[in-house]
Computed example of a mutant assay.
Amino acid sequence: MTQSRNDFDELAYNPTFKWSFLAPKYWGTWIALFFACLFAFLPHRLKLSLSKFIAKQAVKLKSGAAHRARVNLSLCFPEKSESEREQIMYNLYVTASMFMLTFPLLSLRSKEWLENNTEIRGFDNLKNVLDHDENVILLVPHTWSIDIPAVLLASRGLPVSAMAKGQKNKVADWLMHRQRVQYGGRVYDRSVGIKPFIKSVRKDKYLGYYLPDEDLGRQHSVFVDFFATQKATISGLGRLSKLSQAKIVPLFAMINTATGKFELDFYPALPFPTGDEHQDARVMNECIEHYVSEKPEQYMWILRLLKTRPDSTKIY
């Protein structure tokens, strides 16, 4: 299942360290990184207590992130009471805080540590496709632990190819990229187009990493049901599957706040392409609904998930 790869691609995104990263405007980032690394080594019980404390404060703040999460939850779960949605908010912040307190260990500890602290279910759903020498695009919703599968799979000799948008903070962008590709893999900026991503999956045999819940605007989306509302959903996954000659394998990543360990669920390959982009989009959303309904606190509700509306209203 593994093979030697040369991860270099001149079109891939590859930020490098610059001396300007030591300028005063980035000192806050370096200080935050220092404390993040210290907190990462706290015992799990202390990290959980700290996460709960942070969550209690976060739900009280009138921040943009909290506002977006409440808007998203109210539109997606109108049948739930306000207290039920607030409980999801609290659990969401506990989950996010626990992940942030643990995340630095991906770079500070070994691949053996990552393996021992990750529970994997349904891996045969991926292995069986690979054993038939078929290409794979992983369908990975935006959970807090979204980066974990890419790092873990690469550590097993199965690096992924992904498309991403660079961070505004150049130090954070450089550090995150180094962590993501520390065991191999490629990341492409959206500005280079989709062709390098397709080539990496079809010809170079990387696992594609596809984020189905991004809102890329009206031009690149179709409106289909998403929980109790409608969402501008990326169109063209069926076409991408065909061009890449790849099976679409859903993957859901979580962090268990009770244990502090990561959990990955691989599901059977989806029936792509269906031949209908609206149907493809709805199948993707159904996947997200299935995962998130069981573990809503794992999902990044703070994102502008519903930014583009059918009636062009500005809900945020």
Rank of each mutant, 00 (worst) to 15 (best):
R5V: 10
D9T: 13
A12K: 11
Y13F: 13
P15Q: 02
K18C: 14
A23T: 14
P24Y: 10
W27M: 05
W27H: 04
I31R: 12
A32G: 15
A32D: 05
F35E: 04
A36V: 12
L38M: 10
F39A: 05
P43M: 05
L46F: 08
K52V: 10
Q57N: 13
A65Y: 08
H67L: 14
R68N: 11
R70C: 09
V71S: 00
V71W: 01
C76V: 06
F77N: 03
P78M: 04
E86M: 15
Q87A: 13
I88N: 04
V94D: 00
F99T: 09
F103I: 13
L106N: 10
S110R: 03
K111G: 11
L114K: 07
L114N: 04
T118Y: 01
T118A: 02
E119N: 13
E119K: 13
E119D: 12
I120Q: 01
R121N: 15
G122W: 07
D124E: 11
K127M: 12
L130H: 05
D133W: 14
D133E: 15
D133A: 15
E134N: 07
T143K: 05
T143W: 05
W144D: 00
I146C: 03
P149S: 07
A150G: 12
L158F: 13
P159N: 10
A162F: 06
M163I: 12
M163G: 01
K165P: 04
Q167S: 15
V171D: 00
V171P: 00
H177F: 08
V181R: 12
D189C: 14
P196W: 04
P196K: 06
I198N: 02
S200Y: 02
R202E: 03
Y206R: 08
R218W: 07
T229R: 04
K231E: 00
T233A: 05
G236D: 08
G236F: 12
S241A: 12
Q245M: 09
L251H: 01
L251V: 14
A253M: 10
I255C: 03
E263N: 05
D265G: 08
F266W: 11
L270H: 05
F272L: 02
F272K: 00
P273T: 11
T274D: 01
G275A: 03
G275W: 03
A281M: 03
N285A: 09
E286S: 14
I288L: 02
V292Q: 02
V292A: 03
E294L: 09
M300F: 10
W301P: 07
L303G: 03
L303E: 08
L306H: 01
K307M: 07
R309Q: 06
P310V: 13
